[in-house]
Computed example of a mutant assay.
Amino acid sequence: MKDKVVIITGAASGIGEAAALLFGKEGAKVVVSDINTQTGEEVVKRIQKAGGTASFFKADVASAAENKSLVDYAVKTYGKLDIAVNNAGIGGEANKISEMSLEGWHRVIDINMHSVFYGMKYQIEAMLKHGHGSIVNIASILGSVGFEGSAGYVAAKHAVVGMTKTAAMEYSSQGIRINAVGPGFIDTPLLDQLDDEIKKHLVSLHPIGRLGRSNEVAELILWLGSDKASFATGSYYPIDGGYLAR
C-alpha cells in the first residue's frame, strides 16, 4: 500500500473507520470521507499519529456532485486515485413494504445504492487516466438474501452486487478491478439503536456464535484493494460468520 491513494466513504466510524486506519497503517495516503466532520477528522488524527498520511473531505454520498468533488480532491491533493472503498450506508426505515414511507424508501436507496453508482462513475474516470485501480463496494449478506422489514436496504445491496459485476465486466480489461464485500451483522454504531434481545437474535443467526468485528472486514477490504488480489474482479465476497451457510 506504500504511496497508494485511497478514498474511503463513511470512514468516520464502523467498517469505514477500521479500513481507514488499516490502509493508513499499511502506508496508503487515505482520504477519509464522511458527513460527520468531527469524528472524521479524529480518524485522520489517529492515522497521522501512527505515522500515516491522511486528510478529511466532507461529502454526502447521496449527491453526485459531492462524489465528483471527493474524487477531484483526492487527485488534486495526492496526484492520483488508486483505490476506492464505497462504504457509506444506513440501515434505513424498518417496516414492511406496504407500511414503508416513500421518504424512507428513497432515502435508503439514495444513500446505499445511488451513492455507489455516483462513486464508481467518477472514481473510474480518474483511474482510467493512469490505467489501473481497485474499487471495493461494501454490500452486505443482504445483497444475496432477503430480510423482513428491510426492503429498501435489501434492494439497494442487491443492486450494489449487480453494479459491481457489471462494472467489472466493463473495466477489468482496462486495469480496473471491482469487487463487492458482503459483511454479516457487524458490531458497529449502526446496530446501537437495537435492544439487547434483538442483538441476541442476530447473534443466533451466525453459526460462529457472535457478531463480526469491523477490523475483520477491513482486512478483506485491504486484500481486495491490494495487488495481492490481482486476479480478483467482478466477485462478491461474503464475510459473515457462516450466516449464508444456514
Rank of each mutant, 00 (worst) to 15 (best):
F56W: 11
K58E: 11
K58I: 03
A59T: 04
V61D: 01
V61C: 01
V61Q: 05
A62K: 12
S63W: 02
A64D: 15
E66R: 04
E66M: 11
E66K: 06
N67F: 04
S69M: 06
S69T: 08
S69R: 15
Y73V: 03
A74R: 07
V75G: 09
K76N: 15
T77F: 03
K80R: 15
K80N: 07
K80A: 09
L81S: 07
L81I: 04
I83G: 08
A84E: 06
A84S: 14
A84M: 11
V85Y: 14
N87Y: 02
N87H: 02
N87K: 01
A88W: 01
A88T: 00
G89P: 03
G92Q: 09
E93T: 03
E93C: 08
S98G: 12
M100V: 02
L102P: 06
G104N: 04
G104K: 01
G104L: 06
R107V: 07
R107K: 15
V108D: 07
D110E: 12
N112S: 04
M113Y: 03
S115N: 10
V116P: 05
V116N: 05
F117H: 10
F117W: 14
G119R: 09
G119F: 11
M120C: 15
M120W: 13
I124R: 10
I124C: 14
E125S: 14
M127H: 11
M127Q: 14
L128V: 02
L128H: 08
H130E: 14
G131C: 10
G133E: 10
V136P: 14
V136T: 10
N137D: 13
A139Q: 00
A139H: 02
I141D: 09
I141Q: 09
I141G: 06
S144A: 11
S144P: 00
S144C: 01
S144M: 02
V145Q: 00
G149R: 00
G149V: 02
G149L: 02
A151M: 11
A151W: 01
A151S: 14
G152I: 04
Y153M: 10
Y153A: 11
A156N: 02
A159R: 03
A159G: 15
V160I: 12
V160L: 09
G162T: 04
K165C: 10
T166W: 10
A167W: 01
A168I: 03
A168K: 01
M169Q: 13
E170H: 06
Y171H: 15
Y171L: 08
S172A: 15
S172N: 08
S173C: 06
I176L: 02
I176F: 01
R177M: 12
I178W: 00
